[in-house]
Design a protein around this nucleic acid. Structure first.
Lengths: 162, 162
DNA sequence: ATCCCTGCAAAGGGTTTGCAGACGC
DNA sequence: GCGTCTGCAAACCCTTTGCAGGGAT
């Protein structure tokens, strides 16, 4: 499935969600969804806002926050708090479930999958009489370095500002 | 080991850390450490600050933040961001490693242990050439309710403000 | 035409910072 | 006594809120 096909899918999902919840289908909301699904990377509100301003979509910060809440509600976006007081988001459709390793040295993010996470969620839910709806798992650390003392991990992962 | 014995241990650890890093051993710093290890629960900065004020230890918020950073550095305290913009802390000595379930309905925290977390950390570290120093795992959800529609979980867990 | 949504800017809340005075060393 | 730590309050930053105007229905 190409990224354009994904964009069509998520737009449909969003339309359906908005209609079911009697929310208006405003151009700003679709512009934000489109911007998010035009990139693969994790992002924060300010980055998204700046990107859109550069493309002459002038949405306000308030609308970005409002729309992100809607996208969270309908599961098209995931919100992260990687230990900082700055929320990070990522698109949630078209990617398999994954968790994150965060490098404390270079602030980069590396994704990984492990089926045991899902096992833990269901088992702990049963054990504790708790219905686990979502989770967050972050592994923090530092990259092992190769002989030239360069970061082995960073070559493969998406750089982050801050 | 009693809690008083633990307090002696952590104080020694802290002294050692301060000396090694040429930091001053001020009464405020020890008062904060003592206050933290007088309680078992998770706490935020404001709660800690208020508790100390009630006990007539008048430390400033700035000193609380400063000291918490030191305690984080020497591993006597763990910092959490449970998806909100409010940092929560907990003592890190004298408890076994555990993770957290957070109830989205009643905002309570339930602790659990699972050895698979440690397995994932070491395996993913090896696989990704990454040295995992610490991690955070939170399971979010809602309690299963019993017949009277009361929260089954809350009975057993520490209530949180907010 | 209704009234929800947007844009703007101000307010809010947790955390950080700057500076003068205090005190550990 | 020197240099760092403390206390206080202002500054800071991300996020939320209030309000008037605009656009989806």
């Amino acid at each position: 499935m190409t990224n354009e096909e994904i964009k069509v899918e998520v737009r449909q999902t969003f339309v359906q969600f908005l209609e079911q919840n009697q929310q208006r289908k405003t151009p700003e909301r679709f512009a934000i969804l489109d911007e998010i699904y035009s990139n693969k990377e994790h992002f924060d509100v300010e980055t998204l806002f700046e990107h859109m301003k550069q493309r002459n979509s002038r949405v306000s910060r308030a609308t970005v926050y409002n729309t992100l809440d809607l996208l969270l509600d309908c599961g098209l976006v995931i919100k992260h708090q990687f230990g900082k007081n700055l929320a990070r988001y990522e698109r949630a459709y078209g990617f398999r479930q994954h968790d994150h390793m965060i490098c404390n040295v270079c602030n980069n993010i590396l994704e990984f999958c492990d089926p045991r996470i899902h096992q833990i969620k269901t088992m702990m839910g049963d054990l504790m009489k708790f219905e686990v709806t979502n989770h967050s798992l972050y592994l923090f650390g530092k990259p092992q370095t190769d002989k030239e003392n360069k970061c082995v991990v960073c070559k493969h992962i998406v750089p982050l500002k801050d």
